Amino acid sequence: EAHAAIDTFTKYLDIDEDFATVLVEEGFSTLEELAYVPMKELLEIEGLDEPTVEALRERAKNALATIAQ
């Protein structure tokens, strides 16, 4: 499951495998979680700032909209 989540994140969020791995290690496994989890939870991840989190959430929401079509 972790590998599938990493693949999904790299494909749809335009991030590298290392960043995707950090997200999975922090407990995220779906685009929905990244799109809708409280921003505070993402900001608790070391190295993430508000602009990065906002961009990540926007990419996740856009990916979900694209997949739904």
Rank of each mutant, 00 (worst) to 15 (best):
F28E: 00
V22N: 05
L64N: 01
K40N: 12
A63I: 07
N62S: 10
V53L: 12
E32N: 06
E25S: 15
A4Q: 14
L64S: 02
V53I: 14
A60L: 04
T21H: 10
V37A: 15
A60M: 01
D7W: 12
E1Q: 13
R59I: 07
A68F: 07
L31P: 01
L43H: 05
T8L: 15
V24S: 03
I6V: 08
F9H: 01
E33V: 09
F9K: 00
D18T: 11
A55D: 09
D14E: 12
A63G: 04
R59W: 07
V24G: 02
E58A: 10
E25Y: 13
L31M: 04
R59L: 12
E58W: 07
L48H: 02
Q69R: 03
A2D: 09
G27C: 03
Y36F: 11
A65E: 09
E32Y: 13
E26P: 01
D16H: 08
L31Y: 01
L23Q: 00
A55L: 13
T52M: 12
A60R: 00
A35C: 08
L56P: 00
L48R: 03
Y12H: 06
Y36G: 08
F9C: 02
E46L: 15
E46R: 11
V53P: 02
E33R: 11
A4P: 09
E54Y: 10
E26Q: 15
A4C: 09
D7S: 13
E41V: 15
I6C: 04
I6K: 06
K40G: 10
F19D: 03
L56Y: 01
T30V: 03
N62P: 00
L56I: 10
E44S: 14
V24R: 06
A20G: 02
R57N: 04
F9P: 00
N62A: 14
I45H: 04
E50Q: 12
A60C: 05
E41M: 12
I15D: 00
G47F: 08
E32Q: 10
T52Q: 09
L48F: 09
M39V: 13
N62L: 14
A20T: 01
A4G: 08
I6T: 04
D16P: 09
A68E: 09
A65S: 09
K61Q: 10
E25F: 11
A20D: 01
I15S: 01
L43P: 04
L48V: 08
T10W: 04
F28K: 01
A5C: 04
V53C: 08
L31D: 00
D18Q: 12
D49H: 04
A20Q: 01
L13R: 00
T21E: 07
L42N: 03
N62V: 11
A65H: 09
E54C: 09
D16F: 03
D16W: 04
T8A: 11
I6Y: 04
L13C: 03
I15R: 01
D7G: 08
L31V: 04
A5S: 09
V37S: 15
R59A: 14
